[in-house]
Write a protein that binds this DNA or RNA. Structure first.
Lengths: 147, 147
DNA sequence: TTGTAATAGTTACTTTTGTAACCAACAAGA
DNA sequence: TCTTGTTGGTTACAAAAGTAACTATTACAA
């Protein structure tokens, strides 16, 4: 049964990717959780709004590839805590435009600074070559199942 | 607020890693879910036992970096469905040795074949250089928070 | 011994997530 | 107009994961 000429778990890219993703997410998760009581989905929504400005829930979902129920819940909490505002579109009343409040902008700026320096720490673990290849590879892998 | 000289979300390694990990896990998840009704934790436990032979829950946890409650639940389900056996250690009665049943071995062989060919598909998306750098980088990133 | 701490594993309770069904608004053709 | 389909978004229910407290066993030192 043992590993004689066998495919090993550490060879399996999805496994490796998961390990790296989980580990590298933890440290940052602690920051947005402790400082702002946010969940991963919530900080992602926040980040999208901070980066791209006003968006609708569907647009965020497409960008971030998150299911609309996740976003719906994140939006609800973020609005409740006054990090974002929601305003109905006048032409299409199904649509809501989401935007950061001042409080939301502060949180965004704070968190993106942390993210940036944490990112630098992570990159410091790798050579320049590795970082570049890694980026390219991750993008291809992430796109792969899009359609 | 917009992206003038700002850190962007697609630059953030944890984000990219998560996207790639999630996307690349989905296709394979469908296989172990549909064919064997397994959860991610369960197939990981199965895979460890198939690869390394008899192990205890704690050993699997250390290897796979999963919390013991997750493993406890996975072990319970796997045993219930006759994929694995659990036997008490005679010297230390706290410990249980886990091992695959024949049924478990069959499932393991089947799934590892699928994993291997899926992995090949993923690697085909990348250049050889990218694959090698990717592996190295992922290992470093995954280890980074170990201590 | 006895007392204290560590280890293996489970359980109970809470928080998150996934899934599907749902409502309301719009679109577009018969 | 009706009606069928699509889209944006929410909700209800079930499944899964996180956290902490718990039992049982062993280790080890006073």
């Amino acid at each position: 049964m043992n590993s004689k000429n066998h495919f090993k778990l550490p060879d399996f890219l999805p496994y490796l990717l998961n390990q790296a993703a989980e580990t590298s997410s933890l440290a940052f998760q602690k920051v947005y959780k402790d400082r702002y009581g946010m969940l991963r989905t919530e900080w992602r929504v926040l980040f999208h709004l901070g980066l791209y400005g006003e968006m609708t829930a569907v647009e965020i979902g497409r960008q971030a590839r998150m299911h609309k129920t996740k976003i719906s819940r994140a939006v609800h909490k973020l609005a409740e805590r006054r990090f974002i505002t929601r305003s109905k579109d006048m032409n299409d009343r199904r649509i809501e435009h989401l935007a950061l409040t001042d409080r939301g902008k502060d949180a965004y700026r704070d968190l993106s600074k942390v993210a940036e320096s944490y990112n630098a720490e992570l990159e410091a673990l790798l050579s320049d070559d590795e970082v570049n290849h890694l980026r390219g590879a991750l993008e291809k892998l992430a796109k792969q199942a899009r359609g």
